[in-house]
Amino acid sequence: MKMITIDASQIPSGNAVTIINGVKFNVAVSPYQFPKAFEVEYNKDEGTVTIHFKYLGKEQIGEIDHVSDQVTISHGRHSGKILAVHFHADECDIKAIRMFATGEMPELIKQIRPEQISTRLNFDVAASALNVYAPQIAEFAVAQM
């Protein structure tokens, strides 16, 4: 397993707004839901690449969501934040993995749009972090194959 540290300044964070009782409030993703690092793991038996998101605290995995045939997402037990993404990948296909990490996966994650605003912000940040660090993730995944 290899670790990639996420540089928070490289990830775009828009100004989100929420309305409560007709009053506007500025919101931003909480420090507990901003991913600090990736851990990339390749499981040879199953042929799956797993990207673990590292956060402050030690929340355990709760729900597991099958987003598509290829992709599975593990959510945090209490907050519902994204803890890991598992996807099937053919061996040594660095291009496919990179394409997948830059294009399809962030799209899939953004499409989920959870109801709770904190989880939604967390998913947005996770998707753009994947987008930024896709080349390194693909490299690390292939290195383990």
């Binding site: 929420t18 506007k24 839901q33 907050s79 709770q116 605003i117």
Partner: peptide, 24 residues
């Protein structure tokens, strides 16, 4: 737990929304 509308105070709103939140 999660209805920010009925929570009291900004503290309650932050608690319900679980995000960094600040007023205008």
């Amino acid at each position: 737990d999660h209805e920010a509308e009925v929570c009291q105070g900004i503290a309650g709103r932050i608690f319900a929304k679980e995000t960094i939140l600040f007023t205008e």
